[in-house]
Simulated scan of single mutants.
Amino acid sequence: MQLSRRSLLTGLGLGAAAAAIGVSVSEAPEARAAGVRHLGRLTGPEQTGHLGAAWTDLCIPVDTNRGMLFIGGDTFDGAKLFEGSWRSPIGLRSSSTDLYNLRIDSAVGGNHARGLVHEPHHNGMTALPSDVFRVGDTLYMHLMRGRLHDTHHTDFWRSDDQGETWHYLCQWPGDMLGGAFQQKTYAVADDGYAYVLSSRFNRSVDSQLLLHRVPLERLGEPAAYEPWGWNGHQWGWGVAATSVGPVQPWGEIQWRAMNGAYALSWFDTRKSSGYTVKAARLALPTSNIFDAMGSATPLVSHFPRGGAQQKNPYGGFIVPGSTFDNFHVIVSQWTSDTEYWVHQYAASI
């Protein structure tokens, strides 16, 4: 019997995994609401099959100064999902950085996207990217290692050649801070710091949303990550990390400095939200995320919740070059073993 990725990684088949979060794999035909534009699909057999990446997801984008690099997750090159070679993470490239002309035309590895780091994928183990970003001419990539939603540890890598080769920097245990330091995303500010939001990577388990900061010249030093917390009287740096958002299951998160403010996107995995990718604007990295979430813009929903409608969306990674008025995100879709790919959407938030 052919096993699905979730069956292989977590012991659940596609239907069971979808049922576990209350999602039907056959409902909700795609529709688009006013204000959120579907710009097309970036991956799939027609778009990226010739690069050995017919089936891939996530595709976190970063501007490399010579085009856009998309860091993909679990990737297969067979006739359908779960067939052929299994690689993660991979790198796909668009020679254009024009937000309305992104077309993947090459891969790290030439004409067949190769795995960027060593990961044999034995017994369901994988290496899933949670973020990739650039500081100067250097790219950084954060990976979650283990079975899906069972992170053993996370590790951090750098590239000085636009993503062609990656060098190991450091790692963190998967149970650090109650697991809420597994899924990390970095907002690179102009004050010499990166501001790091993190959560547990398990959509069925409540997690804190934590904030740290780290000097840009010390990104690969775990001891340099300084928490933001509440000491009983006031918030401050160097205080034990306190949740800056609701304690709830968190899907994919991304956090970016943008136009003098900060953009947060996340996959809201609660059924009451319609399983929706959302985005919010914050003035400062320490602004009240609870308040910002209350006024968030719904971008792409499984059920209609004011944004575009797409079966089984997840992700929601912000495309470099976006503004709050022209906000582009990469949204994954996994509905069957022949429908596993990423889309591009644009909106205002």
Rank of each mutant, 00 (worst) to 15 (best):
Y314M: 03
Q309Y: 03
L284W: 13
T297N: 06
N326R: 13
T286F: 00
S272E: 15
S301C: 14
Q309M: 10
S272Y: 02
K278A: 08
F290D: 12
R305E: 12
S295T: 11
R281S: 04
K271G: 07
T297K: 14
K278M: 13
L284D: 15
V277P: 02
I289V: 15
K271C: 05
P320M: 04
G321Q: 12
G294A: 14
F317Q: 01
Q310C: 12
G274M: 13
N312V: 03
Q310S: 13
F317L: 02
P304F: 06
A308F: 10
A280V: 11
T297Y: 08
N288W: 03
I318Y: 01
F327N: 00
L284A: 15
N312R: 02
G321H: 13
P298Q: 06
Q310E: 13
Y314F: 15
P285V: 02
I289C: 05
S272V: 11
H302C: 04
L299C: 09
G306I: 05
L284H: 15
P298R: 03
G307E: 10
G321F: 14
D291C: 09
P304A: 07
A280S: 13
G274F: 13
G316E: 02
V319E: 06
L282M: 14
V277W: 04
P285A: 05
P285D: 07
G321S: 14
A292N: 03
Y275W: 15
S287Y: 00
F317G: 00
F317R: 01
P298A: 07
A280P: 10
R270V: 02
Y275P: 00
G307V: 08
T323W: 12
F327H: 04
G316H: 04
G274W: 14
F327P: 00
G316C: 06
G306C: 07
G294I: 09
A279S: 08
L299H: 09
P320G: 04
S322K: 06
A280E: 10
S273D: 09
F317I: 01
G315E: 02
S301A: 14
K278Q: 14
Q309R: 10
F290N: 11
A292P: 00
G306V: 04
F324S: 00
H328C: 13
R270S: 11
A292W: 03
A279R: 02
M293V: 01
P285E: 05
S287E: 00
V277Q: 01
H302G: 01
T323D: 07
F290Q: 12
I289W: 09
A296S: 15
S273N: 06
L282W: 05
G315P: 06
A292E: 02
S295W: 07
A283I: 06
P320Q: 05
R305A: 15
L282D: 04
K271T: 11
V277C: 03
F327W: 07
R305C: 09
N288A: 07
L299N: 10
Q309P: 02
A308C: 11
S287R: 00
A308S: 15
K278V: 12
A279C: 14
R305S: 14
I289Q: 05
S272H: 05
S287L: 01
S301Y: 10
P298T: 03
A280W: 11
Y275D: 09
T286Q: 01
T276V: 11
G321K: 12
N326W: 07
V277M: 05
G316Y: 07
S301L: 11
P304N: 05
H328I: 09
P320Y: 03
P313G: 01
F290H: 15
F327A: 01
T323C: 08
P285I: 01
R281P: 06
S273W: 11
